[in-house]
Design a protein around this nucleic acid. Structure first.
Length: 301
DNA sequence: GACACGTGGAA
DNA sequence: TTTCCAAGTGT
């Protein structure tokens, strides 16, 4: 059956809802941004921090971040460099700049309040389809379809009978995910986070814990004997010797330095002089580094 | 659609 | 030790 035809009948959907929502009520992690008193801004921050980043690593940074900048106005008033420094080693530090830019837009365009609808959320820097849906659902209880890597993997296995989702999100996947979202808005929000949680804790990429799965009996992948992934092997992310590695090393030096560093000091970031210069230039271009008097470098003020 | 973009823990 | 990959976005 082509993936575009994969679907679940109504009785089956109701059963998935019941079992997955019950599982979530018993096994959901007590993440701080799930507290009832968390503001939409707090949810927004958590979703940006969680992009491509394990949730466990986000938690301590989120706690200190919300203490320091409890509202968009607080963050908007901060310097980019301090924001990048506080981002620490979460990775993809451009997210920190965009989060601050989003805070500025929220203050200047949206009266200091996080927008509730996806279309408006999508206009904010660093907010794509996933984050817009997640904030609408988890901060405002909107009925929408949240599709992240967990949801894609769970549906690939449960409904399509495949071990892995496609390399990139397809329209068919989005349609399938939308077709199983509960009609009721509050329930839909819980459903979206419940499927994500199931993917994160049980239906994991590497070592799925099928014996703990609340919908094991309905899983197409398990029923067909858990066949191994067919098709092209996913290309691993290159790392050693890449610009990304050098950029990360430069930024780590600057985060840890109280003042501007010389080009010589930054040479610790990599042995290739041409690559180092290229990376410094691209970091400046990205707004992550600021040149001082042409010869020294620091996080942007 | 393909690529670039950080980081570190688990297997 | 190397590889995998994690609540994606922007170009």
């Amino acid at each position: 059956m082509p993936a575009s035809r994969a679907q679940v009948d109504l009785r089956e959907v109701a059963d998935l809802h019941e079992n997955i929502l019950r599982w979530y009520s018993r096994h959901a992690r007590a993440l701080p941004w799930r507290d009832a008193e968390t503001t939409p801004w707090g949810v927004f921050v958590s979703e940006v921090m969680a992009q491509q980043t394990p949730v466990a690593r986000v938690e301590p940074v989120w706690l200190s971040w919300m203490q320091r900048w409890p509202t968009p106005a607080h963050l908007a008033a901060e310097s980019p460099g301090e924001v990048v420094r506080a981002w620490g080693r979460l990775g993809y530090p451009r997210r920190a700049l965009r989060l601050r830019e989003a805070a500025v837009a929220i203050v200047e365009v949206h009266d200091g309040r996080v927008p509730a609808d996806e279309e408006t959320l999508r206009t904010l820097p660093g907010v794509g389809a996933y984050t817009a849906a997640a904030v609408a659902a988890f901060a405002f209880g909107r009925r929408t379809t949240v599709v992240d890597t967990n949801v894609r993997r769970v549906l690939a296995r449960l409904v399509e009978g495949r071990e892995q989702a496609a390399p990139a999100l397809t329209a068919a996947e989005s349609a399938l995910a939308a077709s199983v979202v509960p009609a009721d808005a509050p329930t839909s929000a819980t459903w979206n986070v419940a499927v994500m949680e199931l993917g994160a804790l049980v239906c994991k990429a590497r070592a799925p814990q099928c014996e703990q799965c609340p919908v094991l009996e309905r899983c197409a992948w398990v029923q067909s004997g858990r066949p191994a992934h067919e098709g092209p092997v996913r290309r691993g992310q290159a790392w050693h010797g890449t610009d990304r590695q050098v950029r990360g090393a430069v930024l780590q030096l600057l985060r840890d330095a109280p003042r501007a560093l010389s080009r010589t000091a930054l040479a610790d970031a990599g042995p290739d002089a041409a690559q180092l210069d290229r990376c410094i230039a691209s970091l400046i271009e990205d707004g992550l580094v600021e040149p001082v008097a042409g010869t020294r470098f620091r996080l942007p003020h």
